[in-house]
Structure formats: C-alpha cells, structure tokens
Design a protein around this nucleic acid. Structure first.
Length: 365
DNA sequence: AACGGAACCAACCGCTGTTCA
DNA sequence: GTGAACAGCGGTTGGTTCCGT
C-alpha cells in the first residue's frame, strides 16, 4: 500500500501567479513553514498544485533570493562551475548564494552560452570549436577557389595545425593578411615556428604535471605561452586583443585575458609576426630543455589536470598554475586538493582570489 | 505607428532517486 | 519487499518585452 495520490489535476489553476496568490503563499509559509507541499495549497487556500507552489516559492518568493543582474564574479563562477559540473544547475546554484537553479539556467542559455559560441568556444565541452575554423581560410582568398599546386602544398603544410587550436586561430588571423612582399615571407616562416611553440607548450604542460620548476625563461615567450593557454587567444581570431576588447567592452572574460596578455600593442596585425617568432624561438629552447627533464621524470606524474577543461584554461594552463609560483595570467583550474582556483595579474587589478571555499566541488568530482 | 523577429524568463513537463505506508 | 507518492532536477514551452525596420 502506497501513499495517497498527490493532487487532482482537475480544477487546479495553472499559469502565471497573481499578486494575491503570492501574498497567500508567503503569508502561509511565514506562519507555518513549508511543511508538506502536497497539503500546503489546500491549507493556504490556493487552487494550485503543491509542485507549482514549491516552484513559485523556491524560484521567486523566497526572501533570500537575490534579484537583478549577475555580477562579474557570479558570471565567472558560473562558467567555471559549469565546466566542472556540467548542467547540474542546482549544484551550481548551491554555490551562488541568492541565485536559483532556474535563474542560473536561464542566464546560461540566454547570455553565457551565446557569448561562448561567439568566442568560438563550445559551451558544452568548453573547448575551442575547430568546426568553425576552415583551413582554406589560411590561404590567400583567391586560392580557396582556384588553388595552385603551391597553394595545395601550403594547405598540406598547415594540416598539423588542426591538432592545435590555439595556433590555428593565430594563423587564421595572421596569414590571410599576408599575401605579398616581406610580410608574406615572414608568415611562411612563421608556420614551423608556431608548431615548435605549440610543441613547447605541450612539453611545458607535461613538466607542470610532473611538478618540475622550469629554468628562467625569456619573459616574452613565457607571457606568450601563458596568454595563449590561459585565454585560448579568443581575441586573435578576428582582431587584435585591443580591438576585440573595444568591440566587446562588456566581455569580462576577454577583459580578464587582456589583462594577462602583455603583447606589444601594434596597429598592424602583421607586426606581431617578428615578436611571435622571437617568442617561439625562446619557447623552442624551453622545449629542448624540457625534453631532457621529462625523460628523467617519467615516473613522477601527479595527474593534476583531472581532465577538466574550462573556457579560459587548457590542461597546460591548469598544470602551469600548479607548478609555477609566479603566475602572471588569469588562469583557472584545479589544484591538488580539487579546489577551483582563479588567479590573475595583480597589475591588471583584476581577479586575484582563491575560490576554494565558494566553489567547493570536491563532492562532485 | 505598426509589424515582425529576437530576447528574456516564469512556469510547466517529464523524468529520476528517495521516502514511506 | 513492494510500489506509489514525494521532492527535486533539467529540459522545454509559451507569454511578454524589447528592438530594429
């Protein structure tokens, strides 16, 4: 023998709540508490299903609910928590005081999700979307329609980039602008350097996993690698970081990343090429050094990344955060305790906070 | 001013795990 | 132990508002 039926479906009101109904529900709960949702509407004199009453109370009438726009900190927390918890809105809401799961869900679907898509980030996996990038766009425009043998060779040379989203974005920004003259020659030279830099980046991530402190490195290359890993270089897709920021002043994520990216400010995108090549060269030195270190530390893998990927971090970034004591970029990731950590450049005056208490997700890991 | 599409959000629906008779 | 109701959750819907033409 089970329980008695919950409520008759017939005769119960549906749809938007009136102020009078709200008043009755609030007054009843203030006096008697929530109690049994099944019996509550009858006792409160409401022609509503108990489920509807519970929803109205938890999502709208509760006195501790915070209304109004989401703050920057809340938005960042939502993105980070979503990257870890997925669509577990109630779990996310539990870590954002005053916000309901329904509100967070709506905000995600109407604001954050679209913004991530615009930035070329998959809102489900929080990884860069390679499907929206086209290798043929890396050729000069006419070549996409009438490719010569040389163009096809170039395309073939670019193929390895498909495995490296950061560099693919960077190349897609730089290469189409360089069709003639010295700039074109520079960008042709850039390709192998980009690949080397990416390899060095991966080697650095491996080192970080092995808890090895790297030797002093040229700061420009360090910043370049950190910036590219921390921010997935969203601002380099169609515009320079400064241009991107100007176009989306409300894009806090981009702003945070911009604070970390300390590339020289050039008017022409192609002017970045020599600096980037120098950075790649420095990174290559790191790669050579790290290959010797990693070969001697293969048995020391702490697996700090735990497969977690966030919109603004890569495994390399998460690993770097754990290995380096001098973090100068905005990075997100998990430390060895499973705590979510957000750190940022002090000079930028942005985030420099440890959210382990607020974002305690250890029970969901 | 009128219209249509986009954006927003409160509320509902249906499912699942838990509780209880 | 069983099965039905409960409570809670995530996905979806539909009404309202906003905005551009």
């Amino acid at each position: 023998m089970g329980r008695a039926p919950c409520c008759e479906n017939s005769g119960l009101k549906k749809g938007p709540w009136t102020p009078e109904e709200d008043e009755r529900l609030v007054a009843y709960i203030k006096e008697h508490g929530q109690g049994n949702w099944r019996t509550l509407p009858k006792n409160a004199g409401l022609s509503r299903c108990g489920k509807s009453c519970r929803l109205r109370w938890t999502n709208y009438l509760r006195p501790d609910i915070k209304r109004g726009r989401f703050s920057f900190e809340e938005e960042e927390a939502i993105i980070q928590l979503h990257s870890i918890l997925g669509n577990k809105w109630s779990a996310i809401a539990a870590r954002l005081p005053g916000r309901t799961d329904n509100e967070i869900k709506n905000y995600w679907n109407t604001h954050i999700r679209k913004r991530l898509l615009r930035m070329g980030i998959d809102p489900v996996t929080h990884a860069p979307r390679l499907d929206i990038l086209d290798l043929t766009s890396l050729l000069k425009p006419a070549a996409a329609y009438y490719p010569t043998q040389a163009d096809l060779e170039t395309l073939r040379a670019l193929e390895p980039l498909a495995s490296y989203p950061d560099l693919l974005r960077l190349a897609s920004t730089l290469l189409p602008a360089a069709t003639t003259g010295a700039a074109a020659e520079q960008t042709q030279l850039l390709l192998p350097w980009l690949l080397q830099a990416q390899m060095a980046q991966q080697a650095a991530a491996t080192m970080a996993q092995q808890q090895v402190t790297p030797p002093p490195l040229a700061t420009a290359a360090e910043q370049f690698l950190q910036a590219s890993t921390a921010c997935q270089m969203p601002g380099l897709v169609h515009a320079s970081p400064t241009q991107q920021l100007a176009q989306q002043p409300q894009d806090h994520m981009a702003a945070a990343c911009h604070g970390a990216v300390q590339l020289p400010s050039y008017d022409n995108q192609l002017d970045y090429v020599p600096a980037l090549m120098q950075m790649a060269s420095d990174a290559f030195n790191l790669q050579q050094w790290s290959s010797t270190v990693s070969s001697s530390n293969n048995n020391n893998n702490h697996n700090v990344n735990s497969g977690v990927s966030t919109p603004s971090s890569s495994p390399a970034a998460a690993g770097r955060m754990n290995s380096s004591s001098t973090t100068t970029t905005t990075t997100y990731g998990l430390n060895l305790s499973g705590d979510v950590v957000i750190t940022a450049d002090d000079d930028a005056g942005l985030l420099n906070r440890h959210l382990s208490e607020l974002l305690d997700v250890s029970d969901y890991m």
